[in-house]
Design a protein around this nucleic acid. Structure first.
Lengths: 213, 213
DNA sequence: TAGATTGTTAATCGATTAACAATC
DNA sequence: TAGATTGTTAATCGATTAACAATC
């Protein structure tokens, strides 16, 4: 068994934040046909120190080999497994407004192991219409749909004023994680994972940094 | 002078990340007509500890009053000033694809002190068309436009393969900050502020956390 | 004035980096 | 075997929390 049993150890959030970045650069290296890489080299590419990279990876297993480094393909696959990208995740999206439509039309999901199984809105004018081969369903049927179809992830792209209500519905029907694009902080039980994309906050941070210069 | 001169002190990035959140909740409290608030109360609402909130605020000045707390309106305005939201920021957007269109149609900017001054694309089929009263300009004219119009912030919503090139153009023509929606890490001079919205990374993080449960 | 709550220093906690023995 | 590079422990750095004097 090459991978350690570290189930009891909590992964620092700082480490979790870096994982997708490692994955992205490794994907690129795989495409370039690179075979091996040292922690120093990969660290330089990704923009972290070599010891930090090794520390991070070793939370999940011993993927390298002394005197050699890391096999790119193997490390990439190991990381994909760690991140749960091996098995496909079923998603639903609620809110077919500006951002919602952008997400529905995006090709990024398919490239990864995520796929949109259904999309919902509350606007009668939109319900029944089709976007990227997906029929817009009535949000009133959301809970039943999630329950019956074993949905993993719910995407919230509705106005802040109704986001909590949608989140509650998702939680009640057994969703595992929520990808939140609405500009509010959702109140959810500990067991439910939430990832926020508070876009306006990003712009405000940028504004501060620009002004501060 | 109620505000300290702390220009020489570097603001921790962790603090900068929290500022927009404080601003958002304070905006809400102002709307609700709340007059005063203690660090304990505001911390509870925002989800940070009271001492942390006080520490954070005191990087920028002494906004509170012993025995009283903070005047909501005053604190909100002070924070807006700190974040550079007092003076309007002029932005251009490059890439009128899925995300780009969503941003153009979004009403969030106008509510804040940001406004889109022009939008660009490289697709001849899109150039000349109109989105939300903005004509899509040829990206070949981007550099001249930024220079002539004193643009503050450039939004990059193009595919990763051309993002660096657009960023280079922006930097050369004197942009101050870049809001990057492309899935690459841009190479820019230190003086240029960059804020990344790597949406796919958010989804991957969520996937990891869901799987890890 | 007495009570409340800030601003700030000191103590703790967590995350990063340095160093090096283990080993391919 | 000798050189290279990992995995991991120890040292440092930064960020958060605790505590309390200052003061409204």
């Amino acid at each position: 068994m090459s991978k350690k049993n570290k189930d009891s150890i909590v992964i620092p959030t700082a480490v979790i934040k870096r994982l997708p970045k490692y994955h992205r650069y490794l994907e690129q290296l795989v495409h370039e046909g690179r075979e091996k890489i040292s922690s120093q080299q990969l660290g330089d590419i990704v923009g972290v120190s070599a010891p930090q990279l090794r520390q991070d990876l070793n939370y999940f297993g011993n993927f390298g080999q002394q005197g050699y480094g890391y096999n790119v393909k193997k490390l990439y696959n190991s990381l994909a497994e760690v991140m749960g990208i091996q098995n496909k995740s079923k998603m639903v999206l609620v809110g077919v407004g500006n951002i919602g439509q952008a997400l529905v039309n995006s090709k990024d999901f398919e490239k990864r192991s995520f796929y949109l199984s259904a999309i919902f809105d509350s606007d009668p004018k939109l319900i029944g219409s089709e976007i990227n081969n997906l029929e817009v369903k009535d949000v009133a049927t959301l809970k039943d749909y999630i329950r019956e179809n074993n949905v993993d992830i719910g995407i919230i792209a509705v106005p802040g004023s109704v986001a909590q209500e949608i989140a509650d519905n998702m939680v009640e029907s057994g969703i595992k994680g929520i990808w939140n694009f609405s500009p509010v902080d959702l109140k959810t039980p500990q067991a439910i994972q939430v990832e926020n994309e508070h876009l306006t906050e990003g712009l405000l941070r940028l504004s501060f940094k620009v002004k501060d210069e």
